[in-house]
Design a binder for these strands. Structure first.
Lengths: 197, 197
DNA sequence: TACGATACGGAGGCTACCTCCGCTTTTTCA
DNA sequence: TGAAAAAGCGGAGGTAGCCTCCGTATCGTA
């Protein structure tokens, strides 16, 4: 259903241990202080030299990638979950809502993700493939049902929703109102809906 | 119609000259390389010592403020222009479109601006007042006309539109598609529109 | 023109990013 | 099992950006 995302967990025992320590430390630090925590701080938290961090993760993005693998997997998984439990439109709405709610709590994760989705790295291509596959399942079902306009593109919707979370001090209520506008914007207008479900 | 925004252009001739040099240099640099251009680079461009920059603009935000004054004024002015020339809904749409188009060409300026509008500095409060006044003129007219839902809030719409421009490499076409979704989301749905204009 | 007020500029302290390389640990294999 | 090879470790140190401080220069005025 979804191809596994590429990670490069090292082979040697000590290296693998440090890799895990770093990823956990980064995950915590990013959640606590946002994604601009200094890499030295993360190395310190992990109890590891800065050189070790940089050997494994040549730049901040590489570390973000490793942290985001799980999150992205769970974003995709949720899509399939909603697809099973809810009707097409509701599933799409729920997925997008979870996207926003989640990333608010995780300090702009989806925002960073959305920015990154524009990039061409191997990693993000793989992510994009997975997210696309999951999202398009929902989107196409909703289109088929006639509750979402045919001409809309998944990546446009995701970027818009991702943009919601980019604001510095967005609270949950406002995010919900913004999402509500987007959701309303997906629906066919009265004059073009072919046959209301 | 709109209260002038506060600027603190200095009194002495040499200081005033440097102030202007810095603001121009910053404006160019921000447009060329984005708003995270280093302040030393800007001082260099202006042919001025870094100390001079920092005396006048105690931090990056202060410099952004000075650069944005004109832009914000022009954003507001455009609102009044559209209000005169176009019907309520079209005026609102045109205004939002200009907002996006402008910030695409000027890198993430409007994005930063939108984020900043959330802040509480004296300056940004003044901006918010002006933008609000201008935007609400358009929004209320459109609501009255019945082409935009009553319950929508200007700041929500602006944040959503601002979010569009935050993506790293957003092209004009995609931005236009995203805006189109937002605009569709403003309209009353078939079952709640009281009396179509 | 002379003097007080104002402004200039860059050295330098701080922090973060990232590289490099001598030393240590793990793995392999005879 | 022990020693060589492979892999990994860590932090010193180079670079760059942020910002402050203060000795020197310029401006405005009387």
């Amino acid at each position: 259903m979804s191809t596994p995302l590429p990670t490069t967990r090292p082979a040697r025992a000590d290296a693998r241990r440090n890799y895990d320590l770093l990823v956990s430390a980064a995950r915590e630090a990013f959640a606590e202080h946002g994604t601009d925590t200094s890499l030295e701080e993360i190395a310190r938290r992990a109890g590891v030299g800065i050189g070790t961090l940089y050997r494994r993760f040549p730049n901040r993005t590489a570390l973000l990638e490793a942290v985001y693998v799980d999150e992205i997997q769970s974003v995709c998984d949720r899509a399939y979950g909603y697809a099973e439990k809810l009707g097409p439109y509701d599933a799409l709405a729920a997925w997008l809502r979870s996207f926003v709610g989640y990333s608010i709590s995780k300090k702009s994760l989806a925002g960073e993700l959305t920015v990154a989705l524009g990039k061409d790295s191997e990693f993000f291509t793989a992510c994009k493939v997975n997210v696309r596959e999951a999202g398009e399942l929902l989107l196409n079902a909703a289109k088929k049902e006639g509750t979402v306009r045919e001409e809309l593109q998944l990546m446009d919707i995701l970027r818009l929703v991702g943009g919601i979370t980019m604001g510095r001090d967005m609270d949950r209520d406002q995010a919900e109102r913004l999402l509500e506008i987007v959701l309303a914007g997906l629906k066919p207008t009265a004059d073009e809906s072919p046959s209301p479900a």
